[in-house]
Design a protein around this nucleic acid. Sequence first.
DNA 1: CTGTTAGCGCCTTCAT
DNA 2: ATGAAGGCGCTAACAG
Lengths: 340, 340
Amino acid sequence: MKESKTTIHDIARALQIDSSTVSRALNNSPRVTQKTKDKILAKAEELGYQRNVLASNLRKNVTYTIGVVVPRISRHFFSSAIQGIEETAYQAGYNVIICQSLEQLEREKKIVETLLANRVDGVLMSISMETLDYDHLQTLKGSNIPLVFFDRHCDLPGNSNVLIDDFKGGFDATQHLIDKGCKNIVHFSGPQVLEIYRKRFEGYKAALEKNGIVFRNDLVFTSRLMEQEGSECAKKIISENMDVDGIFSANDVAAIGAMKYLKQHGVNIPDDIAIVGFSNEPVSRVIEPSLTTIDQPGFEIGKAAVNLLLEQINDKSLITKGKSVVLESNLIPRSSSNKS
Amino acid sequence: MKESKTTIHDIARALQIDSSTVSRALNNSPRVTQKTKDKILAKAEELGYQRNVLASNLRKNVTYTIGVVVPRISRHFFSSAIQGIEETAYQAGYNVIICQSLEQLEREKKIVETLLANRVDGVLMSISMETLDYDHLQTLKGSNIPLVFFDRHCDLPGNSNVLIDDFKGGFDATQHLIDKGCKNIVHFSGPQVLEIYRKRFEGYKAALEKNGIVFRNDLVFTSRLMEQEGSECAKKIISENMDVDGIFSANDVAAIGAMKYLKQHGVNIPDDIAIVGFSNEPVSRVIEPSLTTIDQPGFEIGKAAVNLLLEQINDKSLITKGKSVVLESNLIPRSSSNKS
DNA sequence: CTGTTAGCGCCTTCAT
DNA sequence: ATGAAGGCGCTAACAG
């Protein structure tokens, strides 16, 4: 049984010095001779010493850990955001605990409690769709733990948010179609309770207006944006012989549904009808290389969110001063086959 | 500044009792009167007490945390495995730290160090493709920390593995095609350095043999299984006028590539040629509902892996006794549209 | 530069 | 059933 880990006392005893000197040396304090430092480090190596982070953290009252709460990690946007978060956090010497709310308020509450119990230094959060009031988040504020929302924004005053500019995304998508020569542009929109869809819709209208194209309500199809709903819209366009030369879809799934249907009925994409869709999953581009997508910069969102959080961790007076960062999505004209 | 968290001493003082009694009460020890327990719990609630897990863990020399190392969380298989892991771990009172190696050995090494430093109680791991020797994992063994491999198996003796039965998956896929009446079944296989592809291939051959169908090498297309490679195989089948009525693809992407090409050239799926593919991403089924898939039970793998790990955490003598669990993949004949 | 002392917050013998 | 005392491993004053 070599159960027992070596501690700073072990290496202090072996060297006939005090454990506090060892501690200082291991923390590279300037108040220790280089010579003793070398001795200590050598001995530490020899004994296979490993600092007990728990003890250290307890003493220093920090954890160098941040909690991340997302609806589900399997969604591409979130997994790429997490990638950005980890990258940035690790570089700053922070660990990351990832939690999934699965869009359930109950789970979100429990997660917040757990994170609090584990004394995380800060929390990044993308609230669940069920989350309408924010009482459970007050405990974080109460404990003076910085909290930054990303992707899904929380409209309480004094909170920090990192978001995508959906208005601009919708605008860019529409402008792109107009630049390609489209005049009669259909918009597939989603549930208007969600801010993202409202904003994309507004961007669409703004682009039309800017280019002197009159907005027509009959060109807007609102649905849940599933694949089938996309193809149903396409069906309507064809069967009613609508005069359409462009489609801006608020997500990729509906866009693909529409494309499939249109292609099957002899419509040429993008020559007859050009299509642009907000992209949720990168597979879309693999499946339909001819689909122009608006890509959401998950990685950058993650990075920005961590940076904002670290600012607040390092200067707690910033916690109550809400600060928002807005990132732009990228229009990708049509990707050539790219490796996953 | 209400910086200071309330501790057991605070509530002990408030009640004029000793902190050890408070500790016992909060741990629901049977050696405290129900009456005092009630008093203590009430006071704890009143003062907003929250146990300092760090201190508790330091004292007890545990963390109730397990580390999970995967190549990348964005791959569907891994994110569903993680889901299973979290679910099971949380129920057992364990927290989970998720780390991505991004298929890089260097990162994997660093991650193992971090997990060790954070004194995790156990580790679940899916090794990176770059990992050929296992020196960096010896430190875990050295610290007596249980380690269970999942999905990607580690062939050192005495290690525990949780795997999918790729042989059986290949067998089932092929048998399914045979049952549908196929006689001339093409196999799209992947790089033979990877065990999964060798095993799926073997399953294919075994099923043929069992049904008295002679194996023909010219029906096996080995490639990197990208979409384009799938469509090239399909092209060959058509242009050389091969007599083929079934395809078993070792992944879904190549299968989809082939389907697209075949459909475009007037081949009826599945009447002319039936197709079965191992499924990596569930999107495949959305895109091509007519594709029969072999689904890999990520969630169950995760669950099984945690259970195996917990066994070892609770009985450390099991650590050196390698134990393997093999799970079966599911053949899904053709999903009707299912919501994501 | 190094040693001494005193905790961080909790749990767990050992008494009573 | 409760109190007293010590220590998990580390760090941060305060001395010298």
